[in-house]
């Protein structure tokens, strides 16, 4: 798992753009997401981070350009099969309130015809991996804490061992202590699984802690990408400096 530029990317955006009536959410953009790496999308609110994830999982249809997954062009035709190879976690978890934690996690695997034994084994592995208390598996989302809900959401996204994990501000609604614990666990999980992931966050410290590669966006455009050190030491524009110093003053004031 090297990060040489010519290694085939897991996912690649080629001139992908998206407009809404109110304006352009994403200008034609090229992005490559390397295998086994965590790429962080960061930038001010409304800059198009969520839009990129939603285009990848095809909750939105791109207006232009194409997206390639493992070399295959994605289209509405092959999207169903593709979705089984991708996990998606959103801010408030998006858990189904009428299903227990257990059923939320195994819903899709069961739908695909896995046996109950397989499901139980997998659930065990996931609970251990995400440090989710086994006795809470039979509770409903309404009976779980915010942090536990995000762990269930993570288990659900990982249930089918996805090749790609998309996380849209998964910790934004949590208190700092719980958030720190989850960040640490997530980092371990990523390392253990060699997981390819795209993480959307507002938080530069989180980006630095979890991300291998950082993509800074503003107003629907990629402003600069690289390691955090590159952005800090060789800012490509005034905006980069401003964005980084604003966050630092918040975090270390």
């Amino acid at each position: 798992m090297t990060n040489t530029p010519d290694a085939k990317p897991m996912i690649e955006l080629l001139d992908v753009s998206k407009n809404f009536e109110a304006g352009t959410a994403l200008h034609p953009t090229n992005l490559r997401f390397a295998r086994g790496q965590t790429t962080v999308l960061i930038g001010p609110s409304g800059c198009g981070k969520s839009t990129i994830l939603r285009l990848i999982i095809r909750l939105l249809e791109p207006d232009g350009g194409l997206i390639q997954f493992d070399g295959d062009r994605m289209s509405p035709k092959n999207i169903a099969e593709f979705r089984h190879r991708v996990g998606y976690v959103i801010q408030d978890g998006g858990l189904f309130p009428h299903l227990t934690a257990r059923d939320n996690v195994v819903l899709m695997a069961r739908h695909l015809g896995r046996t109950e034994v397989e499901l139980i084994t997998r659930l065990d592995e996931l609970a251990t991996l995400t440090r989710f208390p086994a006795e809470a598996l039979d509770r409903y989302p309404g009976q779980l804490s915010g942090g536990q809900r995000q762990r269930v959401s993570l288990m659900r996204a990982l249930a089918l061992s996805p090749e790609l994990l998309l996380l849209d501000e998964p910790f934004a609604a949590l208190d700092p202590l719980v958030r720190a614990g989850l960040q640490k666990d997530l980092k371990e999980i990523f390392q253990r699984l060699q997981q390819t992931a795209i993480l959307v966050t507002h938080d530069l410290a989180e980006a630095a802690f979890l991300g291998d590669h950082i993509v800074l966006l503003n107003e629907g455009r990629v402003i600069q990408q690289g390691l955090l050190g590159d952005l800090r030491d060789r800012p490509g524009s005034e905006f980069v400096t401003e964005f980084i110093s604003a966050q630092r003053s918040l975090a270390f004031a």
Binding site: R54, I57, L59, A80, E81, R83, H84, V86, Y88, I90, Q91, D92, G94, L95, F96, P97, L107, M108, H111, R156
Partner: peptide
């Protein structure tokens, strides 16, 4: 968010 989770799961 519930709808989108269900779609993204591939159901």
């Amino acid at each position: 968010p519930i709808r989108e989770s269900a779609i993204a799961l591939g159901l």
